[in-house]
Simulated assay, not measured.
Amino acid sequence: MKKIYLVLTFTFFNLLLTNAQVVGTDIGDIAPEIDLPDTKGENQVLSSLRGSLVLVDFWASWCGPCIKEQPLLLKLHNAYPDKLSIYSVSMDTKKALWTAAIAKGKLPWINVSDLKYWQSPVVGAYLLQSVPLNFLVDKNGIIVAKNIHGKALEDKIKSLLESK
């Protein structure tokens, strides 16, 4: 009888652990926290955007594909101003280049960077190997899509926001 009790207890706790949500970068994981300074030096915390759909966008001023995607991000930002937040994390190391790219692209959303490039703690937390890279995070902080761009990104955001 003790053996059965131990097996059932072990199975119960094993199920609890395997179904528990974890912080990570896979779809279904809780997005890792980011707490970095914006262009004014004020820290912006990713989790403060909970309650809306958030696009976490890793980019750099020197990244051609990143810059090419900014008009689409601006279009999405303008189409869903109260439902979609964009949290851009720059991998730039020079503030002047970073802020100039923001001004040139007229990017009104949250833009953060610690100007440490690959030494930034977010690189490890998000397993960043190259840019552009993005994560779509739901209102509860759960990753619902990652590394989708162009029409696929537009369609995913539209389906998530217009199905409600």
Rank of each mutant, 00 (worst) to 15 (best):
1 M>C: 13
2 K>H: 15
2 K>T: 12
3 K>P: 02
4 I>V: 15
8 L>W: 01
8 L>R: 06
9 T>V: 13
11 T>A: 15
13 F>Y: 09
17 L>I: 11
21 Q>H: 14
27 I>V: 14
27 I>D: 10
36 L>S: 08
36 L>M: 09
37 P>R: 14
40 K>H: 10
42 E>F: 11
43 N>Q: 14
45 V>C: 03
46 L>Y: 02
47 S>P: 04
49 L>A: 00
49 L>F: 06
49 L>D: 03
49 L>N: 01
52 S>L: 05
53 L>I: 04
54 V>I: 12
57 D>F: 02
61 S>Y: 03
61 S>K: 04
64 G>E: 08
64 G>P: 02
65 P>G: 10
66 C>W: 00
66 C>P: 07
66 C>E: 02
66 C>R: 02
67 I>Q: 02
67 I>W: 04
68 K>M: 12
71 P>E: 07
74 L>R: 11
75 K>F: 03
76 L>I: 05
77 H>Q: 11
78 N>C: 10
80 Y>K: 04
81 P>I: 01
81 P>A: 04
88 S>E: 05
88 S>Y: 04
89 V>N: 00
89 V>L: 02
94 K>P: 06
97 L>H: 03
99 T>S: 11
99 T>K: 08
101 A>H: 04
102 I>P: 05
103 A>Q: 14
103 A>N: 14
108 P>I: 04
111 N>E: 10
112 V>C: 06
114 D>M: 03
117 Y>I: 00
117 Y>M: 09
118 W>P: 07
120 S>E: 06
125 A>K: 10
125 A>S: 09
127 L>W: 10
136 L>Y: 03
138 D>N: 13
139 K>Q: 06
139 K>C: 07
141 G>F: 00
142 I>E: 08
143 I>R: 06
145 A>E: 08
146 K>V: 06
148 I>N: 01
149 H>W: 11
149 H>M: 12
150 G>T: 04
151 K>E: 14
151 K>W: 12
151 K>S: 13
152 A>E: 15
153 L>Y: 03
155 D>Q: 15
155 D>F: 08
158 K>F: 07
